[in-house]
């Protein structure tokens, strides 16, 4: 009797831990033991729209990294730090980033466009600043411009 109870309690604890593992690995998709190697790139925008920490960074639709932090620098310009997977470490410093929206009302992400390569370009390394940025399109501003532009005519 006591043996059976021990067995059942063990199975119960095991099932509980298995459920936690399933939630962690399958549902939240968190990597155990530190995620894969990454390096940081910095970009300054004039407006980041609805970009959030952990929004994805994409090159041609392929996720290469995530937004690590968003802060204001000393000139009150939004500063976005991105963590890029080290598998993708060959971006020249002529690359540009833009804040894009997936779909009409979807979530916002950082689109990275690799630039040209010639003798003067260097490869972006950890902590480098990407100069060429394009800010988020804010729908209200667009509507405002549209209305203002029409009334000028």
């Amino acid at each position: 009797m006591s043996k059976k109870i021990e067995l059942l309690v063990g199975a119960f604890l095991f099932a509980g831990i298995a459920a936690i593992l399933m939630l962690g690995l399958k549902v939240a998709d968190s990597q155990l033991g530190g995620s894969s190697e990454s390096y940081k790139l910095v970009a300054k925008f004039s407006n980041i729209g609805g970009l959030k920490v952990r929004s994805s960074v994409k090159v041609g639709g392929v996720v290469v990294g995530r937004v690590a932090s968003i802060s204001l620098d000393e000139d009150f310009a939004p500063k976005v730090v991105m963590e890029i997977d080290t598998n993708f470490n060959q971006f020249p410093d002529s690359s540009s980033v833009a804040i894009l929206t997936s779909g009409l009302l979807g979530e916002q992400f950082v689109g990275l466009t690799p630039g040209f390569v010639d003798e003067e370009t260097e490869i972006l390394a950890d902590g480098d600043l990407i100069e060429d940025t394009r800010s988020a399109m804010v729908l209200e501003d667009l509507i405002g411009q549209f209305l203002y532009g029409n009334s000028e005519d």
């Binding site: 604890l13 831990i17 459920a19 549902v27």
Partner: peptide
Amino acid sequence: IISLPLLASIFSAVGI
């Protein structure tokens, strides 16, 4: 204290 968190995670996992 030990049982309820385990039961709750089993509940969520089975629910999903």
